[in-house]
Write a protein that binds this DNA or RNA. Structure first.
Lengths: 339, 339
DNA sequence: CTGTTAGCGCGTTCAC
DNA sequence: GTGAACGCGCTAACAG
């Protein structure tokens, strides 16, 4: 499946050259590096370009120069506002540097990630950003062979492909759990997103247990629930926890909008937050700040992650030496009214 | 700014051909149309491909065949969950058809849209989806000359570039206002997103006024407020309306999360919704269904818009005749507790 | 500063 | 069913 890119009578660089009375090479230079050409030539070329509405063919340019200006991005799900801030930041940085963005959605599936990366490499992207750090073996080989700079994000892997910009899911979850402990909560529930094929979720759960241990609280598997994303899932999880463990005094939702769903459920049932049960969330959605009560959460600098990832790629493309970079952007605990 | 796409010793089709003991042409065929090659050849080629981890160079392929497999998408803002559902749908359809997606963010600026489209056309995308229907003259020329299929969305323009898949902002806003009238509300406020460079916002406002007229209600300019996006903006707008027009009994928020911000503000102030003031929103964010009270809103089938837009492109690329298509996907009024 | 030559890695086209 | 020749539109490398 593919389509004609343009009709037959497309205007080429030679056409422009002919009409400007110069060589194609001069046109090429006038367009890509105007300073390298005399003003007279430049004017002639510019005039012809405007007159015919010439658009250079970047495909041909890329093939010839062996350099592309497209960066590939693979994310687990486009439909997740968390990533939107990151993508926006990536897009801004790339654009400021004349680069373009090709986005692919892996749907949280590892094998799909592999085929997407291979498709992106076939398109000869000049860099890759992967929001995922657990990869198939073949993906690792593909990437290694391609010699394309890669930034991984989403977590801090033990064995990075190349560069990494992320925060530690373990530290963050541990930090929030400890925070709740410090506030005096003693029976802290934990609701996680699906753990399968998702090391980010697993790290968060590990962090939760580590903090319990630090706090000298006993780990009760019954206080941990796995939930799909979404408001209802959060609501259901909260209700189940409260009903099965009436002594519960706080719940930490380690994912997407779960906490808000739970909060709404409390409003519906008239359970005071944090009076009956405190609520904490992961990720600083705008929503959380404005909800009533405002929700305690972890602020992950998603925008910064995007920006710095893109900047690292840009630097590499500009010739920065190939060295492993590992940036931990950290996180922040935002204490609000819900805890 | 651009980067080496790969190191020098990249494997080419000729390399594979040599090692498989066949001609490059056979490799090409074995990969793009396996059925056109004898099983023996196919096996030899496949073996060599796997052995060397060969990845065809789609850049070269596109240049040679004059067909690309990348679709360009321009949206006003990546950071807007409304578009996420649409993008996801587009991405799914394209992927199922072997196409890729290049995303650009115009930041709601018309001149940026123009330069982005021209960059995408330079990349020789095989199709374009534009979430915007008001374009610069040069953009219209660019697109016309390129002969690339285009789908516009976001509203139903009087003078489409090519194909259109959208709903009518006018009809939707009018429908909701009429709905509020039918429910008995008589002093209906209206909060719009910025009107500048945004025909979608303007259409919505027109729809609001048209409905007031239909209802025989007087149009009071003081009941109309322009607000930036975001929760706070919605909250502020509501408070201002209620304070300047104490008799107000409903407010229709024609944009993004404004309604939710207002609802939260009501919770904070103890204003009953819909007792003191009814609230209606535009666009069926998940959030609205789960808020307390659940918010009356317009359901715009964003996912359908994305899916059908992509399908139209795919059909064209498959050879469907070039005819103007205009699909109105409609909308639905979702009556909930807030009105 | 400008032009010439020679590819980039494929697919189209036409022979066989 | 397979191969050889040619060209896609541009840029690297070198010569002038």
């Amino acid at each position: 499946m593919a389509g004609k890119a343009r009709r037959g009578n497309d205007i080429t660089m030679s056409d422009i050259a002919r009409h400007a009375g110069v060589s194609p090479m001069t046109v090429s230079r006038a367009l890509s590096d105007p300073a390298s050409v005399s003003e007279e030539m430049r004017k002639k070329v510019d005039a012809a370009v405007r007159r015919f509405g010439y658009l250079p063919n970047r495909i041909a340019g890329s093939l010839s120069s062996k350099r592309s200006n497209v960066v590939g991005l693979v994310i687990p799900s486009i439909r997740n506002s968390l990533y939107a801030a990151m993508i926006q930041a990536i897009s801004n940085v790339l654009r400021a540097n004349g680069l373009h963005l090709m986005i692919a959605d892996s749907g949280h599936r590892l094998d799909d990630e592999e085929s997407l990366v291979s498709a992106l490499l076939a398109q000869r992207v000049c860099g890759l950003i992967l929001h995922n750090t657990k990869h198939s073996q073949r993906l690792r080989e593909l990437v290694a062979r391609s010699d394309v700079p890669v930034v991984e994000t989403g977590s801090l892997p033990a064995r990075p492909l190349d560069m990494v910009v992320s925060y530690s899911n373990f530290d963050a979850a541990r930090g929030m759990t400890a925070h709740l402990g410090r506030l005096g909560y003693r029976k802290i529930g934990f609701v996680t997103l699906p753990l399968r094929d998702n090391d980010r979720s697993r790290e968060r759960r590990r962090g939760y247990f580590a903090a319990l241990k630090d706090l000298g609280l006993s780990a009760d598997e019954g206080l941990v629930l796995e939930a799909d994303g979404g408001f209802s899932a959060g609501a259901d999880a909260l209700v189940r926890l409260v009903q099965t463990h009436p002594a519960i005094d706080a719940v930490f939702f380690a994912g997407d909008v779960l906490a808000v769903g739970a909060l709404f459920e409390c409003q519906r049932r008239g359970w005071a937050v944090p009076g009956r049960v405190a609520i904490a969330s992961f990720d600083d959605l705008d929503l959380l700040r404005h909800a009533v009560p405002a929700v305690t959460t972890l602020h992950i600098p998603r925008e910064e992650i995007g920006r710095r990832s893109a900047e690292l790629l840009v630097n590499r493309l500009r010739g920065a030496p190939r060295e492993k970079v590992r940036i931990d952007v950290g996180f922040e605990i935002v204490q609000r009214e819900s805890s």
